[in-house]
Design a protein around this nucleic acid. Structure first.
Lengths: 235, 235
DNA sequence: CGCGCCGCTCAGGAAGCTCCCAGGAAGTTC
DNA sequence: GAACTTCCTGGGAGCTTCCTGAGCGGCGCG
């Protein structure tokens, strides 16, 4: 993959006043190969846009000094086409965020899964032509996944997945052959505040196996005591 | 799509005194690949025409210092065939805007959907020969839509649609096979200030299904928890 | 080699949520 | 005022998510 080389250049500014969230997000984005800048409030954000010159912003709507929208507005001409992904609370009224997806911006409601966030970011960068990686498709062996159409096929045969199954498979496919720990899977596929029983993961692995591995040699493998891995069967 | 390459050259001047509207519109147009200049009143607008040399103007009729028409008049010879799309309040008397469409100009009443605005702009550019993209027609499978005549047919049979149904179908058809989220659909098809219940979307999907999918295999598909998608049925 | 433990698998099922659609009210147009 | 369009409401169906518990199987230890 030449992703790293090309994305090393891509700068993302993350603006949120909760240090925990800021940490989790920046870690995840750095790991994805982005250069990450942070700001904890509107004033810092405006300053950081000038100094850091991000290609994309992640902007919490609830900031201590001003609303995220206000930041976006004040950027005005300076913004110069920097797309923004707004982070909104679940109970933010729909009409507040309405119109965002039209201007090339988008929003993600808290609590979100990191995988969801990254997917949105990539989709926007793709549309804005900032990422050279134009394809919305993932493939492993004869298993294919298209993020635009949300279509999954194995050996050309369509596989019908529910939302959670889809997100889980996408995460596995974006990290092929790597062993993903139980914690990583829960962190990336479920929202960051998911407090339920960790055994849901096993349930969904089981669902996926039935649907994905039912149509060919098993690709989803258990690594006892650690987690799961997407790879070809040995021997 | 080669749209970007060809439209990068096209300059649009947006004139409105409400910062929010100005923002939303310019973002949307930038995202569509236009080069956008802005002005907040008549005086700025006149100056911007000289410096920015737009190919098309978006002109609010209600400006603090003078009426949009006045701006258009004062441009006089300088206007040199720049087409204008006037933005009017809903209650603007019809006779005020009458005759506009004769001269190659057009008008859109507030509040409008951005999709609507973009469609008008493209139509005018098409007529003025400024856009290379000549076709006003969309097609998917045996479903066809002509934006000039607003005619929709499936397998040659005419389908009668109301305005909202038409805009919804057009948006689906301009993004075939892609899964469009609830938010995207509401953003693109309804006006920017629509604050109502998101369930209208479902109602209109239901209307469309009755009219469009009543005449052949279903093309409008639900993607649970995400949105809708226009595609052929799977096997 | 056999036993027991621990982790994993998976079916069954409850609870909650999303979606569909019919019916109707309010607003708009002619 | 009639016809039409837009939007809202509510009930119900069906799906998704998550939990639970029984059983299996691998692995370590004796």
């Amino acid at each position: 993959m030449s992703e790293l080389a090309e994305q090393e250049e891509l700068r993302i500014l993350v603006v949120d006043d909760e240090p925990n969230i800021l940490d989790v997000i920046s870690m995840a984005l750095r790991f994805q190969g982005f250069k990450v800048g942070t700001a904890a409030n509107g004033r810092e954000a405006l300053a950081a846009v000038r100094s850091f010159q991000p290609h994309l912003m992640l902007l919490d709507i609830m900031l201590p000094d001003m609303e995220g929208f206000e930041v976006a507005r004040r950027l005005g001409a300076e913004r110069a086409g920097i797309p923004i992904v707004f982070l909104t609370a679940r109970d933010t009224t729909e009409d507040k965020v309405r119109g965002l997806t039209m201007g090339g911006d988008d929003y993600v409601t808290k609590p979100f899964s990191l995988e969801e966030l990254v997917a949105r970011i990539r989709a926007i960068l793709r549309r804005a032509g900032l990422s050279e990686e134009v394809s919305s498709r993932l493939a492993f062996d004869n298993l294919e996944l298209d993020d635009d159409t949300r279509e999954v096929t194995r050996g050309g045969r369509h596989i019908e997945l529910t939302d959670t199954e889809y997100r889980l498979l996408r995460y596995l496919m974006s990290n092929p052959r790597r062993v993903l720990t139980r914690a990583q899977l829960l962190d990336h596929v479920w929202s960051y505040d998911f407090g339920g029983d960790a055994r849901v993961l096993e349930t969904y692995i089981s669902y996926l196996r039935k649907k994905v591995d039912g149509e060919g040699p098993p690709l989803i493998h258990t690594v006892r005591g650690v987690g799961y891995s997407l790879r070809l069967p040995r021997s």
